[in-house]
Computed example of a mutant assay.
Amino acid sequence: MLKHVHTSSSSVRSNCSTPVHTPHHHHGTIRSLSLSREDTLSINSTMSFGSLSPDNTLSSRSSSYTSLNDSSLSMPSPVVKVPVKIYARCLRADIEYKTLPACNSTTTRQLITQLLSKFKMKHRDPNLFYLTMEVYVRRPGCTPVRSQLVLDDDACPAELQSCHPRGESRFFLQMRKGGLLKVYDSCLHTGSQYKSLLISSRTTTDELVQLLLTCSNVCNEPVTRFSIYEVNDRLGTERKLHPDDYPLMVTSHWDNDQQGHMRLVMHRNPDPVPMVRRKLPWAPKPRPSRKLPPTPDSPSRPPSVIHLLPKPPSDIASSFRSEMDTAMSTYDNYFYI
């Protein structure tokens, strides 16, 4: 017959190394079983995990995730620059290529300006140059096809280069057709008479002024301080070019007879005159306010109180009305023809 023995769980948790007597019906004896260390560790780990509430665990995880997001937003993303190889044999015969660092937001115009400054060609007009991209298109079982693309001034070569495998795209510096332009710039230096520059037909007046300032090493003067004038020496007239005009297109409209007495002159703009407010002669002059001395009977009044004039006496008012009536009766006696 089996005997039921009740063992509390507190005794198991308090001392797991002590033998625990479990009932077993074998010749009326009770065998003792001892728990191993592995069982002790498993019980302890289960009890320790059960002591944590799921709400605390989720809140700690969410707070750590939020802190990671905040730290990622506060850290600025680094600007990665990649090398861009530009073949620039059109600048000089001894120049094969030049490698420039550029990021994905660097435009074609910025690369051309940086390339001219590297070779110390500040007298060259950046509008004379443009970039082309040579791309090889590979097809299975066919010879690679080469295509050439003309890039705009606001295109990003580094971003275009990342869209193609390495070695399958190249950039070439090309040159547009331009014209020789003579500009008299004695306003910059007294010893200088004129400068002859090779510019593009797309170059505006402001860009021409900036190019002249760069050639003369004038860096502290803004472009708005100077203007280009079209001067006619025969007639003694001059016309100021608009900042968005194209000076090379202006000179191309000159006739053969006008070539001898027409020229472009650079002038410094006069300093703006400060505006002075003009006084109107008919403006009434403000009359000084009289301040009456306070009487001992009445307290002193503030200066903002308006004093009313006393009423005229009755005899003066009656005489004024009689004069007005006489004048009106005389006016009615006139006859108009």
Rank of each mutant, 00 (worst) to 15 (best):
S201D: 11
V183Q: 02
L211A: 06
F129N: 10
L198W: 06
S64D: 03
N127C: 13
R239C: 13
T46R: 04
Y331W: 12
G167H: 03
R202A: 06
G236H: 02
F320V: 12
V12D: 03
C156Q: 11
P23Q: 15
P302Y: 07
E96C: 08
T251F: 06
H25F: 15
S329H: 12
P83A: 02
L248F: 07
L264S: 02
P288A: 00
P83M: 01
V82G: 00
T295V: 04
S48F: 09
I199Y: 01
L241C: 09
K177M: 05
V135Y: 04
A93F: 08
G50T: 10
L208E: 12
P54M: 01
A102W: 02
R166N: 07
L128A: 05
L2K: 14
Y130F: 15
D332W: 04
S71K: 08
D206C: 02
L211W: 01
K182A: 14
S36K: 07
R109N: 12
L100E: 03
T113F: 01
K177W: 00
Y194Q: 05
S9A: 14
D185Y: 06
N232A: 05
L197R: 09
Q161C: 02
H189A: 06
E168H: 10
L180W: 14
I86E: 01
V82A: 04
T143V: 15
F119T: 02
Q259N: 09
S298A: 07
L33S: 13
P313M: 00
R37L: 10
L149K: 07
S32H: 08
Y331P: 00
R166D: 09
D153E: 14
S72Q: 08
I43Q: 02
L33E: 10
S314A: 10
T106M: 06
S117F: 02
K120Y: 03
S36Q: 05
E230I: 05
F49T: 13
S117P: 00
M249S: 10
P303A: 03
M175F: 00
Y229Q: 07
D70V: 06
T214G: 08
Y331D: 13
V145Y: 02
R176D: 04
L151G: 01
V183C: 05
M262K: 14
S329Q: 11
H27F: 11
H25Y: 14
S64T: 08
N220W: 06
S11G: 13
T29G: 10
N333I: 10
S36T: 15
Q148V: 15
K311R: 06
